[in-house]
Design a protein around this nucleic acid. Structure first.
Length: 471
RNA sequence: GUCCCCUUCGUCUAGAGGCCUAGGACACCUGGUUUUCAUCCAGGCAACAGGGGUUCGAAACCCCUAGGGGACGCCA
């Protein structure tokens, strides 16, 4: 059997983490079985579907690298096909016209709730033949009344739901448009979807869809219902509930592979392994091993994984990735050293690309202001002599890492100070107090002139902050 | 309310009846390395929801209870 999976979002908002994980698992399953993965845009709700949302989905999938094997399918372009099927169902006697008003439906529902029953359509029009087709009406599917629907979910196991729990769902609205359960069934069938992988909020729809499939004598795909991802209040992640859109993660400086890696570990694991390349995921992922229980989204762990990815990234790729963030900070790369060596030194000090851009900032341009604590601790009158000596020393010393280190050590020795007493003020002088690598390599990259200039500024700063103190 | 699904450290998870005195990871805490921060290293804290069975033996199997989530739309 050829494996074919699909990701079928509705373009009614941002593409969030939950959707992305569903997409990822579907994609992984297709890839590992040499199958196909396709994207289907479920835009039958013309009221709420927007082009912006479609673009966000497309962009998000592209950013993540979850490529589809066919052009995306838009349900809004397949209405003829849906209508054909609805008419067929009508002809077969598996569907019927219903002109119940919304008011009546509401009343019925309320009564049922008052009786503590599950609200369902009562089948009022099921046997009627006198519905006026010139008046507004809908078409409903004749769901079987007896028996039950049973299916083996790859993740959840055997699930059985009695038909008496189901009602006659609307398959064509009064405006003539088809509804979700109908379109899903038709599309999965037409597209030859072998495995339906989706969130477990769809478990309840599955028996309805199977009944529809049976009425159409279509083959029934395998189902795999993924547990939900919940917010830290253990409420379901939804569009208005802490559900950050994927593109925001891009903007925040996350690597797509890191996001994918975090997501693949939500509900799935492979021994004690935490880091998986996309290649490894494809190889090792197993739908059968996906957990049944929901998991809570943990931003701290995402951050950790992102940091791991930043650390293992090669410097040239990282430099490319960080450039947009550098730009956003208004940093002019022409006013300092090459970016790559700077990245190499700073990459273990950043959890996101945004962080990375920030810690690179002091290499370019001048120090606008010192970090308060660092300045208070290190830019004191006591530090002035050392800085003055360094200023002089650096004028002519060899400008290599080694040479810089020797210069500092020379000052330390001559002034009978500890290494820290000299190096720390220097560090604050040239970095402003930002986290930075070894002082010699940092100074080396910043460059002789700039380092000396910054030392001078630090001395001025010391004088200004301690006007009372004589030299 | 009804139906469906779920339940191991705070969080993600390992666990397929004896390997479990329950393992790993994030977070947190303590120490070490270090020239700041980070990295790195060593250590610590911390869980089988509760109750009944089944079994020589149960975190694992069954039942009940409790708790959580989902569905119950002319949304998807």
């Amino acid at each position: 059997m050829k494996v074919k999976t699909r990701f079928a979002p509705s373009p009614t908002g941002s593409l969030h983490i939950g959707g992305v994980r569903t997409a990822l698992f579907s994609w992984l399953y297709a890839k590992q079985n040499n199958g196909e993965f396709v994207l289907r845009i479920e835009d039958t709700d013309r009221e709420r579907s927007t082009q912006e949302s479609v673009d966000v989905i497309l962009e998000g999938m592209a950013w993540l690298g979850l490529s589809a094997d066919e052009e995306p399918i838009y349900q809004s372009q397949r209405f003829d096909r849906y209508n054909e099927i609805i008419d067929q169902l009508l002809e077969q006697g598996d569907a019927y016209h219903c002109d119940c008003s919304r008011e009546r439906l509401d009343t019925v529902r309320q009564e049922q709730q008052a009786r503590k029953e599950k609200p369902k359509y009562d089948g009022c029009c099921r046997q009627r033949t006198d519905v006026n087709l010139n008046e507004p009406h809908v078409i409903r599917f004749k769901n079987p009344i007896d028996g039950s629907v049973k299916f083996d979910d790859i993740i959840k196991g055997s699930i059985e739901i009695a038909n008496r729990e189901l009602d006659d769902l609307i398959i064509r609205r009064s405006d003539g448009s088809p509804t979700y359960n109908l379109t899903v069934v038709v599309d999965d069938w037409d597209m030859d979807i072998s495995h339906v992988i989706r969130g477990d909020d769809h478990i309840n729809n599955t028996p309805r869809q199977i009944n529809l499939l049976k009425a159409l004598k279509a083959h029934i795909p395998f189902y795999a219902h993924l547990p939900m991802i919940l917010g830290d209040d253990s409420k379901r992640l939804s569009k208005r509930h802490g559900a950050t859109g994927v593109l925001q993660y891009d903007l925040d400086g996350f690597l797509p592979e890191a996001l994918l890696n975090y997501l693949v570990r939500l509900g799935w694991s492979h021994q004690d392994q935490e880091i998986f390349s996309v290649k490894e995921m494809v190889k090792l992922f197993s739908l059968e091993q996906v957990n049944k229980s929901p998991s809570i989204f943990n931003p701290d762990k995402l951050l950790w994984i992102n940091q791991e990815y930043i650390k293992m990234q090669n410097d040239s790729r990282l430099a490319e990735l960080v450039k947009p963030f550098i730009k956003m900070l208004g940093i002019d790369l022409n006013r300092g050293p090459e970016l790559e060596p700077v990245i190499q030194l700073q990459k273990e000090r950043a959890k996101t690309l945004k962080d990375l851009a920030e810690v690179c900032a002091f290499f370019y341009g001048t120090i606008a202001e010192y970090e308060k604590k660092a300045a208070k601790k290190n830019l004191k009158t006591k530090a002035k002599k050392g800085l003055q000596a360094l200023y002089k020393e650096f004028e002519s010393s060899a400008w290599t890492q080694e040479g810089i280190k020797k210069s500092i050590e020379g000052v330390v020795e001559r002034q009978q100070l500890s290494f820290g007493q000299v190096a720390l003020p220097l560090r604050v002088a040239i970095t402003g107090g930002a986290p930075s690598p070894g002082i010699d390599e940092t100074a080396f990259l910043i460059g002789r002139d700039q380092v000396r200039k910054r030392i001078l500024n630090a001395i001025i700063f010391i004088d200004q902050s301690n006007p009372e103190t004589p030299n």
